[in-house]
Design a protein around this nucleic acid. Sequence first.
DNA 1: TGTACATCAGTGAACGCGCGTTCACTGATGTAC
DNA 2: TGTACATCAGTGAACGCGCGTTCACTGATGTAC
Lengths: 229, 229
Amino acid sequence: MKSPGSFPVSDKRARTRDQLLVAAQALLVEQNAGALGIRQIALKAGLVHGSFYNYYPDIPALIEDLSGLLFASHAALVAGLRSGGDDLPATFAQVTRQTLRLIVEGDGYGRLLFDAGLPVDRFVSGLRAAMGADIAAGVRRGVFVADDLDVAISLVAGGILGVAVDLHRGALPASAIEPVTARLLETLGLSAAEARRLAFADIPFIAPPPLPLRWQDVPAPFREALRAA
Amino acid sequence: MKSPGSFPVSDKRARTRDQLLVAAQALLVEQNAGALGIRQIALKAGLVHGSFYNYYPDIPALIEDLSGLLFASHAALVAGLRSGGDDLPATFAQVTRQTLRLIVEGDGYGRLLFDAGLPVDRFVSGLRAAMGADIAAGVRRGVFVADDLDVAISLVAGGILGVAVDLHRGALPASAIEPVTARLLETLGLSAAEARRLAFADIPFIAPPPLPLRWQDVPAPFREALRAA
DNA sequence: TGTACATCAGTGAACGCGCGTTCACTGATGTAC
DNA sequence: TGTACATCAGTGAACGCGCGTTCACTGATGTAC
């Protein structure tokens, strides 16, 4: 550690870029994607608007980075669960519950994902891919059953997304998370009893990182793996 | 019929408004919601841009009208299926298949719904409500089984939406529509055999109205019921 | 039937504003010798 | 240690452009008498 209180230039860059991302998230949550202008973002980040170009060539580039940040942050959150063991149904149940709780309890996540008018494709398809890999692995090991793997993944991922939207809109109460998880596990071939046992298991929940997110708060492995992608 | 070739003023209004909606749909399919400006829409509709205000106070008002048009058009399309009989599982299967085929075969529907960046909330929640009513009726009559009705509706509606997106993206082939429908029917409590029978039944498909849509092409009952709402 | 009037969709010009983009610059920080 | 230089994040002013909005108007069509 050198000269406490000062940072190398590269850290300053990282901090200013995070300021831009933070400002963008604030504008998205308070207003919507229409309010995302170079001048607005830079102003909110405490910069002269021309400085924006030191970090991104345009708004879509910033949104792309923000999508990556959301995905990386969520990936880091559930990595702990996944690394716990190789009981795939239990992991699936825990990841599903954790993800849905994020919508209900993570202040602003629902607004950011469903109301802001962001192109959430990259974020959603990232989740879909991760979840699809788990389901495929489960089918290979014989703990999940699916005639057509792609169909099962589509239905399960779509179902989770639909439930997430309904939770956010208030059409479903938070108490629906466990029954939903149980139904999904049944869809994947588990017995009703086993599905309920896993879905209602008393598991610890990891508190989601509060919005706004910052690359500096994402654990280094996820930051490095997902920034470039 | 009076003076062929001429129209009452109210018809002229309706036609010009449809021209604006047609222009908006063209801009959305060719570009995206960011390209929707009053000047762009009016120009594409063959009007001076000031004329836009004769029909809508602003762009969100036009989008609202367009959402209603999409929903009314789809409602008219599936009304024929629904009126066919009161075999709810068969109706559910047919509406689901018809709706998913719309995404695959209806040129531009996928782009309009999933790529344009439109707020499709009103359209989607309308579908959800209609489908929820069918599922609820089925549960009351004992032909569907669901522990928690709201959970079942969320999962089924979300699943259909997720599959629709994947069909549009090419992540699922069109041939997945029938297996998906069968899986959903199983989720609603039907036996695997019965679900397959209904999902793979040889039914007539109604050709979806080609885009762009016009209020003038929507059958009057649906037009009147849904324009004001 | 003829004439005067009302209605209203559509015109076209004007306005001020906020936007994205560029660029020569300042000044703080790190580096070479 | 001291001095000169290089780097580069951030500044601030300027630009032209397309936007939404307004409004007096034109001219076609329908209506009243």
